[in-house]
Design a protein around this nucleic acid. Structure first.
Lengths: 337, 337
DNA sequence: GAGATCGCAGTAAACGTTTACAGAAAGGTG
DNA sequence: CACCTTTCTGTAAACGTTTACTGCGATCTC
């Protein structure tokens, strides 16, 4: 593990200057004979260029960071899986940050862009407040935010339309004849939580159904917390005939709770989730879900960032991925599987 | 997005030399007055130190890489989730590599350590051949391998004992009275595939059962491929009363296939998997599995690497995580859930 | 054959830090 | 008061690259 060879080592062995070595290695025009000597010296020494030195000079690191709350969340995982190959193909490495949805940590990631250890950042904050927006605008490297930012914020942005998503789900449930449609949400101070809350209230009214606050329960976007919230909901509104869950993890918890409570899905209670995670298709019964295009959002974010890296000062772009209804057994029964 | 301030900028503003700035920022003894001037200049300018320059000088990047086949695999995901906080607490960032189990890519990751963009690497190769071992020994930065390497290889190594794991599972199934125990494996040229294949043959004999090659089927370590393999197995050995799957994804596929085939689990066919992924506990029926301590292996690998980074030339360590049997409904029925 | 042109290679500066070394100012000692 | 410490600061080199500039020998042009 001795110190590796540098261009200086090569230059000495090949009997040329370090400038020539650099030129050869970068494919700049050089005399045939010099090229040969340098290349064979580099080869014999097992030379590998030092990327740190190169970065210092070139001011590019060929690294991009992705920051999300927790890679255990299937949605973020899906995004990582899409983002990575796109970046890799473009010659970038991926640095992963888990922020535990902690605002201070997220701000810190933005601040740390000043260290210049990455060329850009893709971030998906659960909550977006003033502090975020200020930090984003002050960021020292290009940033792409996944999740709606206020209009006018000068940052590349990939969004989905969870309002329409909720509406799609509600219409689907209503079209199956359901009238007592419960809603299990995550925290209201999160971006998706607040959007989906509003959308549920609106959607219910548009369908001509009465808004009953007993049909709404708030937990968190995880399976266990979701399951508890569903239990509470079931206690408060035992007559419900459908449950819309603000994400699929909650919905999976709901399937469990309903099964244990002896309710048949979908005969007694139809269940729909959101995000269309991989698990939705393989759960039992398979889960009807609103796809919010996680994979596509990830890919688009990566592409937006690459585009921005190649072209520093174009205007910020906003890309919206439309939600799609994925109908499966948890609302319409097995026959369609 | 103008170029950020450097210590030179600060030095000018504070009217001192760059050396003083550096000393103040690193907390070296300095006159009170100088400290104040430098700090306030740094503060006003929003200075953030350039980590690339720092790395070049210090020869440390505070980055560590983790390379695995595919982060979509729950086992690797679990490891990432364990590794990340350990590294973060020690001040390291995580660089993620997905190699798609491609040997050339894995070798390339090892080679790229010469670029010195990370201080160390944790790698989990699916196959380990001569080329790997050579590349590992030649690596220009500390490496920890998760997965058994041949004895004598000079590298830190975290292993599990899948042989014992398979035996635990077989004994469990036998103790439940099962005699026709099928085995669905992944490719034999992989490290786990070959180990588990041998272990199954041995284990069956030790239980005094006849080895029947009709009870063995090979697919791949994924759910879909596993399901197909289970279908084939079921066709060849319709009388089986238990299936051991070489990982949990295969086992989840098995649950599906058996349900569609009208076999009750576990009454007609008991199913056991390996890895004890999160999903095993929440599947329906919940899945009996051999835990191979993925989380623990990840954590140990990170700790080994940190230890090595702090202490370059201790002898390589080998740590083994013992397998544990997690009994759930897919072998013993619902009552224990 | 003299001067212009060209292809190539070497010197040196730069990227933004850290740090060895030397020098200056201030204080203490005889 | 001369000298020795001590404390602080500045100069400069170094980390490993890339690249602007300069210079040299060879080829071309008339």
């Amino acid at each position: 593990m001795s110190d590796g060879p540098t261009i200086t080592t090569i230059a000495e062995r090949a009997g040329v200057s370090i400038a020539s070595v650099s030129r050869v290695l970068n494919g700049l025009p050089t005399r045939e004979d010099t090229v040969r000597r340098v290349l064979s010296a580099a080869d014999e020494l097992g030379y590998v260029p030092n990327s740190v030195a190169r970065s210092l000079k070139s001011r590019r690191t060929n690294q991009v960071a992705f920051a999300m709350a927790d890679i255990g969340n299937p949605v973020y995982l899906t995004m990582v899986r899409e983002i990575q190959p796109v970046l890799k193909a473009a010659g970038y490495r991926l640095v992963l940050h888990s922020t535990d949805a902690d605002v201070a940590e997220e701000i810190d990631v933005l601040r740390s862009l000043g260290e210049r250890y990455v060329d850009g950042l893709i971030m998906i904050p659960l909550r977006i407040g003033e502090a975020h927006l200020k930090a984003v605008e002050a960021a020292r490297a290009p940033v792409v935010i996944i999740g709606s930012v206020p209009d006018g914020t000068r940052v590349d942005n990939v969004r989905t339309d969870s309002r329409t998503g909720v509406r799609l789900a509600l219409e689907h449930l209503r079209s199956l004849g359901r009238r007592r449609i419960g809603f299990v949400n995550g925290p209201l101070d999160t971006v998706p939580g607040s959007a989906r809350s509003t959308a549920y209230a609106e959607g219910i009214r548009e369908l001509g159904l009465p808004y009953d606050e007993n049909l709404v329960e708030i937990g968190d976007f995880y399976r266990a917390e979701g399951a508890q919230a569903v239990s509470r909901l079931l206690a408060r509104a035992p007559d419900l005939d459908a449950v819309l869950c603000a994400n699929d993890l909650i919905a999976l918890g709901a399937l469990d709770v309903l099964r244990r409570a002896g309710r048949r899905v979908p005969e007694d209670v139809a269940v729909a989730g959101m995000d269309d995670i991989d698990l939705a298709a393989v759960a039992w019964p398979s889960l009807t879900s609103i796809s919010l295009g996680s994979a596509e959002r990830g890919r688009l974010a990566a592409e937006l960032l690459l585009d921005r890296l190649g072209n520093g000062d174009r205007d910020p772009k906003v890309v919206t991925v439309p939600p799609r209804l994925m109908v499966r057994a948890s609302t319409v029964g097995e026959e369609t599987t």
